[in-house]
Simulated scan of single mutants.
Amino acid sequence: MIGVIGVIDMPRQAREKSSTGIYHIMLRGINRQKIFEEDKDRQKFMETILQYKTISNYKLYGYCLMDNHVHLLIRETNEAISKVIKRISSSYVYWYNQKYDRCGHLFQERYKSEVVETKAYFLTALRYIHQNPVKARMIKDIETYFWSSYNDYIDHPVITDIDFALEIFSIDRQIAIELFKKHSKENNRDQCLDYKESINTSDDEIMKCLNQLGIRTVSELQRLEKEHRNNIIRKIKNVKGCTITDLTGTINLSLCPYPCVP
Rank of each mutant, 00 (worst) to 15 (best):
K135N: 15
D163T: 14
R189H: 09
C260L: 04
A136Q: 03
I171K: 15
T144W: 04
Q222M: 13
N252W: 14
H24E: 15
D101H: 09
N211I: 01
M26C: 13
K112R: 14
D9C: 12
S113D: 12
R110T: 07
I25S: 06
A80E: 09
K182P: 00
Y258D: 12
H156F: 05
I2D: 05
H105L: 10
Y150K: 08
T245P: 01
I206A: 01
S184I: 06
V239F: 01
K53H: 07
L247T: 09
L247V: 11
N230L: 13
Q174C: 04
I206W: 01
L255S: 12
Q191G: 01
H71V: 09
L106D: 08
H105M: 07
N231L: 14
N31V: 06
I159G: 11
Y92T: 09
S202P: 01
K140I: 07
T201A: 11
F146M: 02
H228P: 00
I215W: 02
T248P: 00
M1Q: 09
Q131H: 06
P259Q: 13
S91T: 14
L221R: 06
G241I: 06
I35Y: 01
L60Q: 03
Q98T: 04
D190T: 05
T48S: 10
Y111Q: 06
S19E: 15
P262Q: 08
E186T: 03
E178C: 02
N187R: 12
K59W: 05
N151C: 09
S18Q: 10
L123Y: 00
H105I: 03
Y100D: 04
H69Y: 15
A165E: 08
Y128I: 08
G214M: 07
M66Y: 11
Y128V: 11
M46P: 01
R87E: 00
E227P: 02
D67P: 03
V70M: 07
I88Q: 08
V158Y: 02
E109G: 04
L72V: 06
Q191E: 08
S149R: 13
T118N: 00
F164C: 08
R28S: 14
